[in-house]
Every structure is written in C-alpha cells, then in structure tokens.
C-alpha cells in the first residue's frame, strides 16, 4: 500500500503538471480538491483517465469520484480493492 501511495503521488504530480510540488509536499490524508491541493474539474477527469489507464478501473458514475479522490489514502484503498492491472 505504501508503494502504491508513493506511485500515486508521483503520477499525480507528473500527470497534473503540479510543477512546484514534490512527493513530500503531499500528505496521505491531504484533501486533493478544495483547500488541499486545489485540483480543478479537469484534474478530476485526468484522475479518472489515470485509474483506467494505469489500474484498469473504469468509473461509470462520476459521483463515485468525490469519495475516491478525497485523498491519497482513499484513492489507494479503492485501487487496491478494484484494480484489474
């Protein structure tokens, strides 16, 4: 799980072009949206694509994303349970 969290942080920084951020800047329980990393709606769509491309998870209900993408902790837990690759 720790390796997955590290991988998620690296991918989020790279895929979402968070230029001035490092892995150390993102705590496992930081809010990804809102007051945390302040990601936007396009970032949310990129995260959905990332789940599909990297882990074979297709989100059919966008409302699911709100809980899944709350933090690195919630993302890692969901991916661990649902990944197909």
């Amino acid at each position: 799980m720790e390796a997955l969290k590290q991988e998620l942080k690296e991918n989020i920084i790279e895929q979402l072009n968070l230029e001035d951020m490092t892995v150390e800047d993102i705590a496992d329980d930081d809010m990804l949206f809102g007051d945390g990393l302040a990601l936007d709606s396009i970032d949310a769509l990129e995260l959905i694509v990332m789940l599909d491309k990297n882990y074979g998870i297709k989100l059919t209900d966008p409302k699911e994303g709100r809980a899944i993408f709350e933090s690195i902790n919630t993302m890692a837990a969901y991916i661990t349970e649902h990944r197909s690759k």
Binding site: L16, N17, I42, D43, L45, E46, V49, D52, K53
Partner: peptide, 9 residues
C-alpha cells in the same frame, strides 16, 4: 485509447 481531458481542452 486514452484521450487526456487536459490536452483536449
């Protein structure tokens, strides 16, 4: 087939 929303916009 993985179009990037961030590119598409």
């Amino acid at each position: 087939y993985f179009p990037s929303p961030a590119v598409f916009v």
